[in-house]
Design a protein around this nucleic acid. Structure first.
Lengths: 127, 127
DNA sequence: ATATACGGTCTAAAATGTAGACCTTCAGAT
DNA sequence: ATCTGAAGGTCTACATTTTAGACCGTATAT
């Protein structure tokens, strides 16, 4: 299911193009990272702070994947201490539009969803 | 991160509404299931066949979560053998629109993504 | 002298996902 | 009469993924 195998080989393409893309961005962190980068370039630790509860390893891995797929660029400034900046590419920027629609939908409907959860829980509890 | 704890209690709401929603639908299977239900009602095993490589357990669990959150309804017809139908609710239907945009984006850009992977791999390979 | 920040990697442990056996009941094939 | 298969799941054991946290090197601030 993942696009990186144990031996770290890149799976270049999967049978279904839709799944190929959704599998990559439909994980726990990708959307959150892209959203964090929407306002502009950020450094590694700034991203960690922005997202709040992601582990370094997952941030590092997910950034690498997003870079592989061309959503972001990684720029290393060989200073000391090193500075690394992550920026959305044109592809990443173009992705923002459908993603913002999703975010807008989430914002509009989350009350309804919370209500559904309460209703569901109530239905389970009785009996 | 998940909305269901080990003791199967429902987490009714999370601090950030966007994450509350994205966490739920941003897993491996939710989008795929909603997409499969877009054309109309489907039964459990029909969904399995439609999606192809989902395990029974994950299908069962994900459907339960989607039902909790009000995206789908589950209707059990107490026949023998039992028939269970899953259908999008109005909320689920309203979600289709932003999701289709995402799918359309994926369809449009997946060639670019595959190209980016090839470029990345080439860049890694040379020493 | 010590602590902190930078951007990670590594390891061990915890959480999550998978495959496949199993359950009940009935219809249809042998 | 017996066996098979399908329905919609659950349960268990195993595999994979994620997490938390130590560690690395250098340099500035205290």
């Amino acid at each position: 299911m993942t696009a990186i195998t144990a031996s770290d080989k890149i799976v270049l393409e999967q049978p279904c193009p839709i799944r190929d893309v959704l599998d990559r961005i439909g994980d726990q962190w990708s959307l959150l990272i892209l959203e964090a980068l929407a306002p502009g370039t950020l450094r590694f630790n700034a991203l960690m702070r922005e997202i709040g509860d992601i582990s370094k390893q997952m941030l590092s891995r997910t950034l690498k994947q997003l870079e592989q797929d061309g959503f972001i660029t990684r720029t290393l400034y060989p200073e000391v201490p090193p500075r690394v900046e992550y920026t959305l590419t044109p592809l990443g920027l173009s992705f923002l539009e459908p993603m913002q629609q999703l975010v807008a939908w989430a914002d509009t409907h989350h009350r309804t969803i919370v209500a559904a959860r309460i209703r569901y829980e109530a239905a389970q509890t009785k009996t």
